[in-house]
């Protein structure tokens, strides 16, 4: 195994253009998906936490369950949606990075919604009376609680990022693993492994592992810092 590892490190140290292109696309897709999931999921989760309506319990259970949605199922659903023979076929999005962003958003959104709901619900128990006393109603309290729960929420968002950047099933189905176009780290690892071409696969594996480690270290440090700084 000496050979592939050395080549892999060489690819990384030389900042090999194919490798960089794949990493760049992976980050672009996953970060976009995280951003969209947050834009939708944070208000939605906070809304679920602070409102009461018939069927609320069912919605909460649904989002909790969707956190365990297998990526391939999400991929298949988005594939059927975006396929030319599907309802959104005219958008011509299948086998594009946009399709992959959409699929990963579907994967991350339940995590963001469920976590936000639970964080905001807990905060409301603590803050509710005080905020009402200060004149904030529940709608006004939403951004307040989201901001005050920012550290806990960040952990959840990073969990979502981790799930999206590690998954291969959804992006493979809706992206098609097209070289230079929709090939991400995980789909490239799959392909290169099946080619018996382990150098690039290992290099990408190392990068992915490093990314995950960095993110977790970051999350942990922010948590520590926040405990000291924000109380």
């Amino acid at each position: 195994m000496d050979g592939p590892f050395v080549t892999a490190l060489d690819l990384i140290l030389r900042a090999d253009s194919v490798l960089m292109q794949i990493i760049g696309l992976s980050l672009r897709v996953t970060l976009s998906a995280v951003a969209i999931a947050c834009l939708i999921g944070l208000p939605l989760g906070a809304g679920l936490a602070l409102t009461r309506f018939p069927g609320r319990g069912a919605v909460i259970v649904l989002f909790n369950a969707l956190m365990g949605l297998p990526p391939v199922v999400a991929g298949l659903a988005v594939y059927l949606l975006l396929s030319r023979s599907g309802p959104l076929g005219a958008l011509d999005l299948l086998f594009t990075p946009s399709a992959m962003i959409l699929a990963q958003t579907v994967l991350i959104l339940p995590i963001v919604v469920s976590l936000t709901r639970s964080v905001v619900e807990d905060l409301w128990t603590e803050y509710g009376d005080q905020l009402l006393s200060l004149g904030a109603d529940r709608a006004r309290a939403m951004p307040t609680l989201l901001w005050d729960g920012r550290v806990s929420l960040l952990t959840g968002v990073l969990a979502g990022f981790g799930r999206a950047s590690a998954e291969v099933g959804a992006v493979l189905i809706v992206g098609g693993n097209i070289a230079g176009h929709t090939r991400t780290m995980t789909t490239a690892i799959t392909l290169e492994t099946t080619r018996g071409n382990l150098d690039l696969a290992i290099a990408l594996g190392i990068v992915l592992l490093g990314l995950t480690l960095t993110l977790n270290a970051l999350a942990w440090s922010i948590g520590q810092w926040a405990r000291v700084q924000l109380g």
Partner: peptide, 18 residues
């Protein structure tokens, strides 16, 4: 842009217009 699948699936993809 090459989408790589087994022959059966490749034809199915084309059948769907993708």
């Amino acid at each position: 842009r090459v989408v790589t699948q087994g022959t059966g699936q490749a034809l199915e993809t084309a059948r769907r217009g993708d």
